[in-house]
């Protein structure tokens, strides 16, 4: 059998449209789940034991249930509770929720890696709490948290394919819609795979630059 890529130019716009939705979804989840993850991390380290236990339990539930099931819940389950969402917002909501808990674990271990004496020293020097956080604690968590952060960002990118199950017109959905018409799945899937690999590559480049930037920053001070 031979691969025949002659139909690809014809379906290229549809694939690009799908890739556009994939990028939108990835960015939206990345932008929303990052502060969500920080919130989870702070709650995981909160002084109240009941709050810590609650967040730990939620974290276990949201990281233990298959993402696909959570997507179905957001899309089919929430309307019963009076919240009907379009496919894309439903996917963003579901993915942001579970990614916040994954990010929360990363950030919590990053925060734990900063010795508690530093916050105490900053308090003793009369530095306001928010400035201690922004200027002293968080910058030091970056080197520890950046590699797992980016690898989870690629998980978000790859996870967006699941949104096809709730009818979000992203890249895998677009690919499937094409090959059920052309009857040549391999060619379309190879092109879609190449697009995913390219987007992964962009994230890995970001990680390289990010690591170099944070190393330079540390060396400079």
């Amino acid at each position: 059998m031979t691969l025949d890529f002659s139909t690809i130019p014809e379906v290229w716009p549809a694939l690009m449209k799908g890739a556009g939705v994939t990028i939108q979804l990835t960015l939206a989840v990345l932008i929303l789940a990052t502060p969500g993850g920080l919130l989870v991390a702070f709650l995981r380290l909160a002084p109240q034991p009941w709050l810590r236990a609650l967040v730990l339990a939620l974290s276990w539930v949201f990281r233990g249930i298959p993402p696909l099931l959570l997507l179905f819940f957001a899309f089919f389950g929430l309307p019963i509770m009076g919240l009907t969402l379009q496919p894309l917002p439903a996917a963003i909501l579901a993915m942001t929720t579970y990614m916040s808990f994954y990010f929360g674990e990363i950030f919590a271990s990053g925060l734990r890696s900063v010795p508690p004496g530093q916050a105490q020293a900053a308090a003793a020097l009369g530095i306001p709490a928010h400035r201690t956080l922004m200027r002293i604690i968080l910058p030091q968590t970056i080197p520890a948290a950046l590699p797992p952060y980016i690898s989870h960002a690629t998980e978000i990118l790859k996870g967006t394919a699941l949104a096809a199950a709730v009818a979000v017109p992203e890249l895998s959905n677009a690919a499937k819609k094409i090959f059920v018409v052309t009857y040549r799945p391999l060619e379309v899937l190879i092109v879609a795979a190449a697009i995913y690999a390219l987007l992964d590559g962009v994230l890995l480049l970001l990680q390289m630059f990010g690591e170099r930037w944070s190393n330079r920053r540390r060396a400079g001070r």
């Binding site: 059998m1 790859k158 996870g159 394919a161 895998s172 690919a175 499937k176 799945p185 995913y196 690999a197």
Partner: peptide
């Protein structure tokens, strides 16, 4: 690394939908 770059769904599509094209 090629497999790790791809969404699991695309890998499953490759086997399930792409397989028949290879017989």
């Amino acid at each position: 690394n090629a497999v790790r770059l791809l969404p699991a769904l695309i890998v499953l599509y490759f086997v399930f939908y792409g397989g028949p094209q290879l017989g």
